[in-house]
Design a protein around this nucleic acid. Sequence first.
DNA 1: AATCTTTCCTGCCGGC
DNA 2: TGCCGGCAGGAAAGAT
Length: 271
Amino acid sequence: MPELPEVETTLRGIAPHLQGQSVSNVVVRNASLRWPIPSNLATLLRGHTVRGLQRRAKYLLITFDHGTLILHLGMSGSLRILAQDTPPEKHDHFDLLLATGKLMRLRDPRRFGAVLWHTGEVLQHPLLAHLGPEPLSTDFDARLLYQATRTRSIAIKLALMDSAVVVGVGNIYANEALFRAGIKPQLHANKLSKARSETLVRTIQEVLREAIEKGGSSLRDFIHSDGSSGYFQQHYFVYGRTGQACKQCGTPIQHLTQGQRSSFYCPHCQR
DNA sequence: AATCTTTCCTGCCGGC
DNA sequence: TGCCGGCAGGAAAGAT
């Protein structure tokens, strides 16, 4: 799925096309995403102007005078800006048509994404209200990570992927950040020292910043907002490298399953 | 045909 | 007993 860097890249890709523009229509071809797309969106949005766009966790927020459109790309979603005469393909479920003659199209083969409408303060929406801090904000620091893990006996990797602790750290970047911090993914979260909290916050921010700089990685489903292929392999230290030599010490990278997800680590470099 | 992918939700558990 | 936080497991759809 698109991780935070891909969502951030998508935001930067669509924002110039939507900011300040008027919606001429909405087309819903298949409303059954994770939750149903509201059936009255066309009526709600026609003639209204996009006032702003932002990202919170992996949610994209498109704000109008009278409410906010909340989008999530799920595991396989992508947004593209296209001409309005572009024929839709099989998994193109949602179009936001603009007075400029362009449209923003949501493609989501696995339909775990979401298109929702919220009136009032968008950050109070139930999906957003209880999220932890943004990983790249100053709110996310060693003190917070240390505090948040004190009562948690789960593995540190699972804690990093818990959106109540910090948002936007998905499977790839959790694995990579733990490698760079020299911390094994199985470490009980409440055993994380203050010193290691410092290191881990730094490596999380490092891997996310690098990925955003590279234009968002890398998952095979990701497509840039202009429609170009987004799949180019990033340089991973551990993710997907089971059995291959650790790039730091040569020890074979190990695989394990945590919370029904794949973890990868170097048993020599990570303790 | 089992596996992989993310996140929310349900239900269980132990502690108080 | 009831509430709470913490946690495991399940579910959604499609590609491979």
